[in-house]
C-alpha cells in the first residue's frame, strides 16, 4: 500500500486558507468544498483530496504545516483511511465542488 494525503475537515474548515489547493503539483487533485465544514457547524468549507490522483509527495503537508501553520494534513495509508473522494465521484458546481465519498479499496 502507499501513502496519500488526508485533510482533517475539522481543522481545515475552521481556517480555510486554500493554500494546499494552490501548491499541489497535480491538477484537479486537492479540491474545495464550500459546504464541508458548514455541515458540522464550522465557519468555512474544507479542502479534500481526490485520493486516486494523489502521488503522495506530501508538499501539501509542508505547506499546511510551515506556510499556513494549521497542521491539518497527514499522510496516511490509502487502504486504512476509509471513505474518500475519488475522481469519478466528484461533482463540480458553480463555485464549489462536492464529492460522494467511497472506499478506494472496497471489500
Amino acid at each position: 500500500m502507499y501513502l496519500v494525503a488526508n485533510i482533517s475537515v475539522d481543522i481545515c474548515a475552521a481556517t480555510s486558507c486554500k493554500l494546499c489547493t494552490q501548491f499541489c503539483p497535480e491538477a484537479n487533485t486537492i479540491l474545495y468544498n464550500d459546504e464541508a465544514g458548514k455541515e458540522k457547524g464550522l465557519r468555512y468549507g474544507s479542502a479534500y483530496v481526490s485520493v486516486d490522483r494523489c502521488k503522495g509527495c506530501a508538499q501539501c503537508v509542508w505547506v499546511c504545516d510551515n506556510m499556513a501553520k494549521h497542521n491539518a494534513i497527514k499522510m496516511e495509508m490509502i487502504d486504512l483511511i476509509g471513505d474518500q473522494a475519488l475522481t469519478e465521484n466528484i461533482h463540480y458546481g458553480e463555485k464549489s465542488t462536492t464529492a460522494t465519498l467511497a472506499n478506494p479499496f472496497p471489500g
Binding site: 486554500k18 489547493t21 494552490q22 501548491f23 499541489c24 503539483p25 497535480e26 491538477a27 484537479n28 486537492i30 479540491l31 474545495y32 464550500d34 479542502a47 490522483r53 502521488k55 503522495g56 509527495c57 506530501a58 508538499q59 463540480y92 458546481g93 463555485k95 464549489s96 465542488t97
Partner: peptide
Amino acid sequence: SQVGSFKEILEEHPMCAGCAMTLFIR
C-alpha cells in the same frame, strides 16, 4: 485563488511526484 472549485485544463500527467516544474506548469 479560485483553484479547487473549477475543472482545470491540465489533467493527469506522468511527471514525478512532487515535481516543482509540474507545479509551475499547472
